[in-house]
Structure formats: structure tokens, C-alpha cells
Design a protein around this nucleic acid. Structure first.
Length: 790
DNA sequence: ACGCCGACTTGTAGAGAAGAAG
DNA sequence: CTTCTTCTCTACAAGTCGGCGT
């Protein structure tokens, strides 16, 4: 069959490029073998392993296809980046200029595919320019705007214990607190109980949906009793667009007011001591705290900070302080470090007191009432002011994140609830009653102008329900994935450029679990996903390390994390990519007829509720299940089973490219570990000698010596065990140094798979999920039996 | 049909707590 | 007990995606 398809190739080959350019592609189905090929690939693709290394075999070679020399240069340039750090800006430079050129060319060139739709990038360009202008104007205006100093707050000696006072002091409504005390104790007890009793009973004894929204005294301390959790997943679901009928909460907790520095902490400008005004001092403090962070060595960060800082200054300060380099924050920095140190070395009592205070705050503000149940809130504290820390090369890093007041906050709650009270002398921006959204409070953050929310904890019904639906959608995808895969394979041959691009992009999304890749503004870090891939992000190799048709991806994805992958692809994909890259240069969109809206619209037609990200969920969960089936051994010890689970988890994390920075001191701790292993080996050698000696003596008879011999032998075994453990630890840690398992566990793996696995193989669920995770996945824990299949 | 924005999910860093080792 | 390591949890940035207004 290989021969046949090769034959087909050779027939088409000479003219193929041109053919495809004109997109006058033969309609008739490809040869039988190709079909077989497809099915083979399909079955392999769906058969499980999506982890990087195991991509389907490629088809036979065909003649060289010329690659633009431009392209080659481009590629060579980027070849040298083996050592690019996790987060990097290496793609940034050419972007703007080239985008411009793209657009120009795109607009002038009414090129090959007149029959096709208009390239999106041309329009994109124009819009970008317009936007830029608008942004410029806006930021100009903003610059002129005077900074209005916030009103003074009472000053305190900052060295006092009050420093520790967390957020807004709680008004002592003694009675109330007491009346709830009991309840609270229950909660606390539960907490400790959960900690101590490692083997929680699996299914919690629920308080038969007792409709007491505010739990009363009657509730006695059964440890399993979880007042804030009920079996919502057994309730009938109503789907009328409303998310709740009754919602009541206490409102957000504000950041504590600013306290001035003690007078012995000084600030110098150009060698001269300057007493800063309060507002300027506060912001200087934000910077001083970060002095030993990498951020402060970045130009963008410094510029943005300095600009915003000057806005907060008085006229006099502003005229004096004109150069950040002449600022000396050393004393301030030392002061903050000192405080941090003191905080770290707090006594037990202090820590305890602090903890209690926090718990009280949590108790008061951390819960809300929603449709007859108490639910935990996710983030009930308003974000404190500070300097914006964008990831990667963010153009706005270092800008001041304003302090928020009640006047900035919109409250969402039931009309018939007790509204939260704004702090003394303040008013909410608005109180609304919108049951179609799930947030309790929101505000607009000033750096990026984005809305931020206060929402429920993942353990809540609202979140859990959504989470479950997500996995249900992914499972639905499972039932039609074969059809979809077949379809996009067909589409690689389509006459229409946009269909081909869509099909190839979908292939990447499916196979590599790439993100969709929305367009981004100019004032955000330059990162991409599948649909926004640009010319410079992939390289094509006919042959690489004895693999054929290799595509090398190298780009910065979400959070500016580098995605690097060498993927052998099918011939058709490869040829299509060559086609897409023709007449393009760095900065041009690879898929110029495609964006996420188009992709998702198409996907939705294939299956209701299907979007690009479902593929990530689907492939992650599917991989986990496959890997677990593959790796788990019935007779293994629990520890070994857990190792298998972690391996499966790791496979998923690799698929999803969940990386982390190498932990600080990884190198060092590795060395230490190695030393330890060496020492252990030495010990073992020593012990072996001793055993030998002992044996000799034991042979001479006496009982005592025999005992000594036995002892020594046991010792030796123990040592060997320890060594083995250390070595496992070593490899494990090294493999894990750049891989983050948490994200996939939390967001991509259907918890029911894990739960089922635990139940089937008798692994306690606590070994897999910690307390928070168990809370979040309670629905799955209660719901899935050992036979659950994704 | 497009571009903007609101709502919600996903993602990492880093602080602090807990656990292990010395 | 102290110190170093690992685990847990929070904070908040940065994605996805749908809907709405133009």
C-alpha cells in the first residue's frame, strides 16, 4: 500500500504545489490505500496516547518541495534558542513592524485566491491601527489627569503589633458572633477532624437536605456533617438562565488603610533626604518591596512605575524627582524586609492569634447564603493596591493598581436580602439584583480596564455544576470524535483555503491540545494559541532526526510559557502548511483565514456545545484514563499505584504543556540528594564488609555472633531499600522539575476517573486529592462508582 | 459580521503550613 | 528543637467564549 500511495504522489508531485495553490484539488476520493491510511491513523489517534513522543507514522517521502529562502533564513535565526528561559520575549521584536507589512501586502495583493473570502488579516490590521490611535489618545488624556491623593488615614507606629492587623477590623457584634459560635466550632472541629482522621468515610452523611439555610444550634457535631454541602447533583436541574433565586452576603473586605513609615526610615534622592508625601510614599513602598525582584531590572517596569509614581506626587516632589536612577529606596527596602522577617519568626501564640482572627473574618465575610444554603466565597477580599505584575513582556507591567473604595464596587444580591453595608461614610457604586450571573461583587481594575469579580468557591454548587457539565460535554465529544476526525481529514483536501486552514488548525488543537488562540491587543504580552500562530512560530522539516514531515512549534503561549515541540505530522498537513506559509514572512498569520470565532462556530455545528477548549479537556481526561488502564497493576502496593497515577497525571501535564519554573534551589537540592546517595552507597559498602566479617564469625558458632550477623544483614537490607527510594526520588524529582501537575488535576481531568480508579484499586482518595480538592470534587467522589468510564 | 466587553475558566507564583531530616 | 523541603492555598493574571450593539 505504501507503494501505491507513493505512486500517487509521484503522479501528482510535480504539479502538486501548483495544484494546491489554485486549490483546484481533485474531488475524487484518494486511493484506497490512503483511506486505509486515514483509518489507521484515526484508530491510532483515538486509541489513546497523545503524549508527545508517539505520533502516528508518517507516509512515504515525496520529492523536495522548495522552501522559500526567506523562510530558511528566518528559521536559522531562531535555531539557536535552546536556552531560552521559560518565559521569554524573544518573539517580540519583529511583531509590530511585520504586522504592518503584512497588512499592507495583504491589502495590495489581491493574490491567488480571488475566489476565496477576503483574508482576515487585512481587516485585522486596520482595526489594530485604529485601536492603537484610540489607545494613544486615551493614555494621553490619562497622563494629563491629575492624581487625586487619597484622604489621610491615621498614622501609627508601624513597628507595633498592629502591623499584623489584617484587613478591615471586625465590628464586634458580640451577640451575633456568640450565637454563631457553636456552628463555627463545628466547622473548626470538622477541619481538625478531617486532618487527623485520615480515612474519612467516603460518602458523607448528609443532613437530609434539611432546608435550614442558616444552620441552627440543633446541629450536633457529627464530624461528617457538612452544613455547607448538599447533594445538589441529585437535585433536578432547572435551566431557565437564572443562576439563583436568593443571594445574600456581607460584601467584600477592603484592604487595610495605608500606614506611614516610621520617621527613621528615610528616602534619598540624589543623595538628599526627602520626606515624601503620604501618597507618594505609599507607592514608593510598593517599589521598594520589590527591589530584589527581577521586575525592577526591566525597563518597561521601571518606566511605567515611575510615570505613575510621579502622578501621585505633590507639585514640589514632581519637580524634584525626575530620574528613577537617582532614587535610593534602600532604607525602605531594608525596613520591609525586616518586617517580613519579623512576620516569619512570629511566636506560636502570635500565629495562633492571627489564625483565629483570620478565621473570624472568614466566618463573617467568607460565606454567603444562596438558595437556602451557606456557600463559601472564593475571594472575599478586595485586591489591595500595588504595582501591576504582568507576565512575560507585558507592556503595562509596573503600572499602579489603584486602591479601591466602596465607590468602585458593584454589589450583586437578592432584592429581598439584607444588603451588605459599605464601610462608614462610603457608598457602593451600585447595588444590583441580577440572577443571571454568579458574582457577588465586581469592580473595574484600572490597569487593563477589566472587570474583576468576587465569586463562589469551587466547592459551591454553582461552580461544581458547571464543572460537571464541562466534563459531560467532553464525554459527548467522545461519542463523535471519530466522525470529527474523519471530517477534518477530508477537509485537508478542500478547495477552499479557509476550510483547509480550519481543518489543519483543528488537527493541531485535537492532536496537540493547543489552546484556541484569540487575538490580542497591542498592549498585552505577545502570546499566541492555535488560531493566532504566526509564520515565525513553526518550522517545517522534511526530515528531522530520521522522522519525516516534522513541524517544529516554538512559540509563547498563555502566561508567556514557551511551547516547544517537534511533531511528525501527516504528509497532507505538511503540504498544507507549506502552502499556508507561501509568500509570507515573520509577523504574518499562519492561518490568515481563520480566527477563534470561525473555528468555534464550525465546531458548534459539529456538536452542540463544542468549542476548541473541549478538545483539551477531552484529550486530557481520555489520556488519563488510558494511562491508568495501562500503568496500574492490580497487585501493586498502594505506593506503587500512586506512582502510576502520578505518571499518568504527568503524561497529561506534558500534553497540556503545563510547565513551571524550575524551583528555586532545585540544583542545590539535587546535588544534596546525590551526595546523600553517595553516602548511602558508602554506607552500604561498609555494611557489606561488616556483614561478611560477621558471617565469618557466625560460622564459628556462637549464638550471639549469629544474632549480630542477622542484625547486620537486616541493616544492610534496610540501607539498600533506602538507597532505592532515594534513587526513585531523584529521577522523579528531576522529571518533575519543570512540570506542574496541579493544573491538569484541577481543571482537565474528570475527577470521576480518579475516583473510580481509587475505588477500584482500593486506594484511599486522600492520597490523590487533598482537602481542598476533595471539597471541589465532592460531587464526583459521591457519584462515581468503581466502574465509571469517561 | 465585526469588534468590544462581560462572565467565567485556567494558570502560575509565591507565601505560609506541615512534614522530614538532622 | 531547628532547618530544610514539600505541600497547600491564595492571589491575581491571562486565557476562552458568547452576546450585544453598530
Amino acid at each position: 500500500m505504501e507503494q501505491d500511495s507513493a505512486a500517487e504522489d509521484s503522479v501528482n508531485n510535480d504539479s502538486m504545489d501548483e495544484d494546491e495553490n489554485k486549490l483546484s484539488i481533485k474531488e475524487e476520493p484518494d486511493s484506497q490505500d490512503e483511506k486505509e491510511n486515514i483509518t489507521a491513523n484515526l484508530s491510532q489517534a483515538s486509541s489513546c496516547d497523545y503524549s508527545m513522543s508517539q505520533f502516528s507514522k508518517t507516509e512515504p517521502a515525496f520529492d523536495d518541495v522548495k522552501v522559500d529562502s526567506n523562510i530558511k533564513e528566518e528559521m536559522d535565526e531562531q535555531d539557536s534558542d535552546e536556552d531560552i528561559p521559560l518565559r521569554s520575549s524573544f518573539h517580540n521584536k519583529s511583531r509590530l513592524a511585520s504586522r504592518l507589512s503584512t497588512a499592507k501586502r495583504k491589502m495590495n495583493d489581491s493574490d491567488e485566491d480571488d475566489d476565496d473570502d477576503v483574508p482576515l488579516s487585512a481587516r485585522k490590521k486596520m482595526k489594530t491601527e485604529k485601536k492603537k490611535k484610540k489607545k494613544q489618545i486615551m493614555s494621553d488624556m490619562e497622563d494629563e489627569e491629575d492624581y487625586i491623593p487619597k484622604k489621610k488615614k491615621q498614622k501609627k507606629n508601624v513597628f507595633s503589633d498592629d502591623e499584623e492587623e489584617d484587613y478591615k477590623p471586625i465590628k464586634k457584634e458580640k451577640k451575633k458572633i456568640e450565637s454563631e459560635e457553636e456552628d463555627y466550632n463545628d466547622l473548626k472541629k470538622k477541619k481538625t477532624a478531617a486532618k487527623k482522621v485520615k480515612k474519612e468515610p467516603k460518602s458523607t452523611v448528609k443532613s437530609e437536605k434539611s432546608e435550614d439555610s442558616s444552620p441552627k444550634k440543633g446541629r450536633k457535631k457529627k464530624e461528617e456533617d457538612q452544613p455547607e454541602v448538599w447533594k445538589w447533583w441529585e437535585e433536578e436541574k432547572k435551566d431557565d438562565g437564572t443562576k439563583w433565586h436568593f443571594l445574600e452576603h456581607k460584601g467584600p473586605v477592603f484592604a487595610p488603610p495605608y500606614e506611614c513609615l516610621p520617621s527613621n526610615v528615610k528616602f534619598f534622592y540624589d543623595g538628599e533626604e526627602i520626606k515624601l508625601s503620604e501618597s507618594a510614599e505609599e507607592i514608593a513602598g510598593f517599589y521598594a518591596k520589590m527591589l530584589d525582584h527581577d521586575y525592577t531590572s526591566k525597563e518597561t517596569f521601571n518606566n511605567n512605575f515611575f510615570k505613575d509614581w510621579r502622578k501621585s506626587m505633590t507639585e514640589k516632589e514632581r519637580s524634584k524627582i525626575t530620574d528613577l536612577k537617582k532614587c535610593n529606596f534602600k532604607q525602605m527596602h531594608a525596613y520591609f524586609m525586616d518586617i517580613a522577617e519579623k512576620n516569619r519568626s512570629r511566636s506560636k501564640e502570635e500565629k495562633q492569634a492571627l489564625k483565629e482572627k483570620n478565621e473570624e473574618l472568614m466566618k463573617e465575610y467568607g460565606f454567603c447564603k444562596i438558595d437556602g444554603h451557606n456557600e463559601k466565597i472564593g475571594n472575599f477580599k478586595i485586591e489591595p493596591p500595588g504595582l501591576f505584575r504582568g507576565r512575560g513582556e507585558h507592556p503595562k507591567m509596573g503600572k499602579l493598581k489603584r486602591r479601591l473604595e466602596a465607590e468602585d464596587i458593584i454589589i450583586n444580591c437578592s432584592k429581598d436580602s439584607v444588603y451588605p453595608k459599605p464601610p462608614e461614610g462610603h457608598k457602593w457604586k451600585e447595588v444590583r439584583h441580577d440572577p443571571t450571573v454568579t458574582w457577588l461583587a465586581s469592580w473595574t481594575e484600572n490597569v487593563q480596564n477589566q472587570v474583576k469579580y468576587i465569586m463562589l468557591n469551587p466547592s459551591s454548587k454553582l461552580k461544581g455544576e458547571k464543572d460537571m457539565m464541562k466534563y459531560e460535554t467532553a464525554r459527548r465529544l467522545h461519542s463523535c470524535i471519530d466522525k470529527i476526525r474523519k471530517e477534518y481529514r477530508e477537509d485537508w483536501k478542500s478547495k477552499e483555503m479557509r476550510v483547509r486552514q480550519r481543518a489543519v488548525a483543528l488537527y493541531f488543537i485535537d492532536k496537540l491540545a493547543l489552546r484556541a488562540g484569540n487575538e490580542k491587543d497591542e498592549d498585552q504580552a505577545d502570546t499566541v494559541g492555535c488560531c493566532s500562530l504566526r509564520f515565525e512560530h513553526i518550522e517545517l522539516h522534511e526530515k528531522k532526526d530520521d522522522k519525516e514531515y516534522v513541524v517544529v512549534f516554538d512559540f509563547l503561549g498563555k502566561d508567556s510559557i514557551r511551547y516547544y515541540n517537534e511533531v511528525p505530522v501527516e504528509k497532507r498537513v505538511f503540504k498544507n502548511l507549506q502552502l499556508f506559509m507561501e509568500n509570507k514572512q515573520a509577523g504574518d498569520d499562519l492561518f490568515d483565514r481563520l480566527n477563534t470565532a470561525i473555528m468555534n462556530k464550525h465546531l458548534n455545528e459539529l456538536m452542540e456545545g463544542l468549542t476548541a477548549k473541549v478538545f483539551r479537556t477531552y484529550n486530557a481526561s481520555w489520556t488519563l484514563q488510558q494511562q491508568l488502564d495501562l500503568l496500574t497493576n492490580e497487585d501493586d502496593t498502594v505506593a506503587e499505584k500512586i506512582l502510576s497515577y502520578n505518571r499518568a497525571n504527568r503524561a497529561v501535564a506534558i500534553l497540556c504543556n503545563h510547565q513551571r519554573a524550575v524551583p528555586k534551589g532545585h540544583q542545590k537540592s539535587m546535588e544534596k540528594l546525590k551526595e546523600k546517595i553517595e553516602a548511602k552507597k558508602e554506607n552500604i559498602r561498609d555494611a557489606e564488609r561488616q556483614v561478611k566479617d560477621a558471617k565469618r564469625e557466625a560460622n564459628n558458632g556462637s549464638v550471639k555472633e549469629k544474632m549480630v550477623y542477622d542484625k547486620k544483614k537486616k541493616m544492610l537490607e534496610r540501607l539498600k531499600d533506602q538507597l532505592a527510594k532515594l534513587e526513585i526520588q531523584e529521577t522523579d524529582r528531576d522529571e518533575n522539575k519543570t512540570i506542574a501537575l496541579g493544573t491538569s488535576k484541577l481543571n482537565y481531568l474528570d475527577p470521576r476517573i480518579s475516583v473510580a480508579w481509587c475505588k477500584k484499586y482500593d486506594v484511599p482518595i486522600e492520597k490523590i486529592y487533598n482537602k481542598t480538592q476533595r471539597d471541589k470534587f465532592r460531587w464526583a467522589i459521591d457519584m462515581a462508582g468503581p466502574d465509571y468510564r469517561f
